[in-house]
Amino acid sequence: MAKGALIYRQKRATRVTHWIWAICLFFLLFSGLQIFNAYPSLHIGREAGFDYDNAALALGGVQNGDALQGVTRVLGHDFETTGVLGVSGGEVRGFPAALTMPSGQALATGRVIHFFFAWLLVGTLVVWLVASIVNGHIRALIPTLADLRRLPGDVADHVRLRFHHTRDYNVLQKFAYAGVLFVALPLMIATGLTMSPGFDAVAPWLLDLFGGRQTARTIHFVTMLALVGFFGVHMAMILLAGPLNEVRSIVTGWYRTDAGGEDDHAA
């Protein structure tokens, strides 16, 4: 494809906040799995059922003869997951050492890491929101009517791995980024706060909104999975759309557009 104009696509506030989020989410993910491992079950409702079963997910180990088997129970269905979930490294633990930070069992330290980066994430989101309202970046994320009309064509382009490089985000990008920034991350923060006994005294309506503290914990976990899924797609799109150009735009701000695009004329 012929080269188009090099445009200044990402403002400094967008780039700096993007990388702080990347760092925060890295530490939040693995310290979060450390915290999860302290009680590797998820429940639906206000409390964790000990005398009754309201578990949505439970990771554990069962002794089978000489072997310790890892068992993952999802909505009542058991799966053997030895070596990864339930049992790994010869011991009973939810997620394996490779996925928890710190690697060994260290709930207190996991919490120290988690809450530090949770505060940093929230602070960065506030800075980003104010900056994006002021510099107009926020409009780039909101899908327009014209975007919705282009949606089928955009989906078809993505399926064929045919990517257009323009100043504006395409509609699937808008949905993905707006979904992360306006849905997933606020949901993470809100469900995280719902798990706080202190915050529950201030905002008990959060408990009603999410259906109880243990449901909030489950939603927090499921939203984590969605964010991990987003990360996977995000990386795949960067590789497929041209990693050097994509990474350059989020590091330096400069982005090479396709030849013959409107941006070519604008430049």
């Binding site: 890295f26 490779a98 996925l99 710190p102 690697s103 120290v112 890491i113 949770a118 505060w119 706080s196």
Partner: peptide, 30 residues
């Protein structure tokens, strides 16, 4: 392998004290 990055944090250190400063922020905010 980055998960072992902060394994040393389980011991008292300047970095741990810094990260744990978020506890004061939480208490003040709450």
């Amino acid at each position: 392998s980055g998960c072992t990055l902060l394994d040393g944090l389980t011991d008292d250190s300047g970095l741990r004290a810094f990260l744990q400063g978020a506890e004061n922020l939480t208490m003040t905010a709450q």
